[in-house]
């Protein structure tokens, strides 16, 4: 079963299919639709990982309120994938969990 719905309103939604990149891998989407939607239609579910817990994150509100879908797009970090429109050749990267805060006792550092 594909990730796309066909039926009411689908004719109005058609726009050209283009190729863009997810972590360097070629993927496809429709011009102008949000990156998160193209990825979701392809079956991708993890869009990034939470910085504190390392847990995977996907789309939550889908309207730009919650910032769960943040990805690095066209070199810019923390872009909301549910808002960012797809175009030919767009570079999309998942943001890996940054290294954890190291706990050092200041009195023994030097």
């Amino acid at each position: 079963m594909t990730g796309r719905l066909h039926g009411i309103g689908s004719a109005e939604r058609q726009s050209p299919t283009v190729q863009f990149y997810l972590d360097g891998k070629i993927v496809t989407g429709m011009v102008g639709e949000p990156v998160a939607m193209s990825l979701w239609a392809l079956g991708e579910r993890t869009l990034g990982w939470n910085e504190e817990s390392g847990e995977p994150r996907g789309v939550f509100c889908n309207i730009g309120h919650c910032f769960e879908c943040r990805m690095t797009i066209a070199g810019q970090p923390d872009q909301r994938a549910c808002l960012y429109p797809v175009r030919e050749g767009l570079e999309v990267r998942r943001q890996p969990r940054p290294s954890a805060l190291t706990i050092v006792d200041g009195m023994t550092r030097l």
Partner: peptide, 10 residues
């Protein structure tokens, strides 16, 4: 700042 890469732990 948003959560993300830090610039040092102190």
């Amino acid at each position: 700042s948003a959560k993300g890469p830090l610039f040092g732990d102190a």
